[in-house]
Amino acid sequence: MRVRWAVVVASVTAVTASMSGLAGMPGAAASVAASGATGSGSASGVVSASAPGNPSGRAFVPPEARAVDTSRPSRVVGNGTPASCTSQAVVAAVAAGGVITFDCGPRPVTIKMTATAKVRNARPKIVLDGGGKVTLSGGGKRRILYMNTCDQAQGWTTSHCDDQETPQLTVQNLTFADGDATGQGADGGGGGAIFVRGGRVKVVNSRFVRNRCDPTGPDVGGAAVRVLDQSRDRPVYVVNSTFGGAAGQGGVCANGGAVSSIGVSWVILNSVMTHNAAIGRGANPARGGTPGGGSGGAIYTDGNLFSVRVAGSIIENNSAKEGGGAVFFVSNDRTGTLLIENSALRRNRSAGFETKGYPGIFFLGAGRPKVVRSTLK
């Protein structure tokens, strides 16, 4: 896909929101080519033969955001055959922690999860690397991967669960398909493929397709990924990854058809988010007589002091029934910042409201969004 860059002049019209439906609204660098992801199977057929992410993206990827070396794994799921790569083996490996790789044979394989893989909070490091050939499927029935430092069932390791350095979770070279967190209300729900609270998480060279979470609710979100409480307010890195990617492959949730968070910063580099949808109704807080939701077709963020940076990425053909067809960003105390650089945001439909001069974006934060060498249309 060829991206035509355009400069958005800094003197763009001051941020004012269209009032339609707004009542009640609260105030990678080439050297990182990384781990050789090639393509993965899915629960209902092959997703794509191409690598995930935006091949034209040239955003520099800092060392801490890059794929982890898995040449010496702590444990391996499978013994060389597809049949040996089971849900039970994945669940056990994630619980044990360490660097996890797969040996499922030479061809792409889908592992249908019969239970959610849960990180134990005493494990300092969990790396899950599918080698570009593994799809983890929730089968449209369950969330795929879960980490929560405040969930005592996974082990209580500190007295300040909302701000601790570990566990540190990396998912790389994997496809997450057909995860569904509908009805999972703990800590606000969301995260059809991956739910994380606490520690740190990063996503590298991965693909998310057809994931779901609750269809209504004013703050539930993240059909693919939901994140809360990152250690020392460090950002979630998403690098060389695809959310959706084609018609019928996107995520669907009340808010945040791709990703969602509260009080968490994001750095999204050289990635693609397309065909995701926020399908709730009534915004946040919910208008009278509505269940709430419908904002952030691709990205939904809320909180006070946090930041979102999108660089070298493509966000297009996403939709929101309320605000922010591409990005919904609300910093309640107006300290948060949004930066979009060397990216293309196109054809993201905001059915209710968006910020004047910024197609596909609803922004309440410090000043105006900063848009550099990017297309918004």
Rank of each mutant, 00 (worst) to 15 (best):
M273F: 10
G263M: 04
C253T: 03
V330E: 02
V236D: 07
A117F: 00
R207Y: 02
T70V: 15
A223I: 03
V32T: 12
T216D: 08
V201E: 04
V252F: 05
G292I: 04
V310R: 00
S48N: 13
D333M: 06
I315P: 10
R373C: 07
K370N: 11
N276K: 01
A29W: 00
D162A: 14
V76H: 05
V171D: 04
G198Q: 01
A33R: 12
T13L: 10
T86G: 09
D151S: 01
D233Q: 13
S241F: 02
V236G: 06
G198F: 05
V238P: 07
N79Y: 02
A258D: 05
A49V: 13
Q172E: 15
I144G: 09
S343H: 09
G257F: 05
P106R: 04
E354Y: 13
N121G: 09
Q164N: 09
A28G: 15
G280N: 01
A93W: 02
E165A: 14
S84A: 10
V32A: 14
A246Q: 15
A247T: 10
S56I: 00
G198I: 04
S84V: 07
D180Q: 01
S343P: 11
D151M: 04
A193V: 06
T13F: 10
V94C: 02
Y300M: 12
I100C: 03
L269V: 09
G294K: 03
A6T: 14
A366I: 00
A286L: 05
A366N: 15
L136F: 01
V227Y: 11
S206K: 07
E165Q: 11
F102Q: 05
I268R: 03
A115K: 06
T337N: 13
L22F: 11
G297A: 02
N211G: 09
P82D: 10
M273T: 02
S319K: 13
G221W: 00
G217V: 06
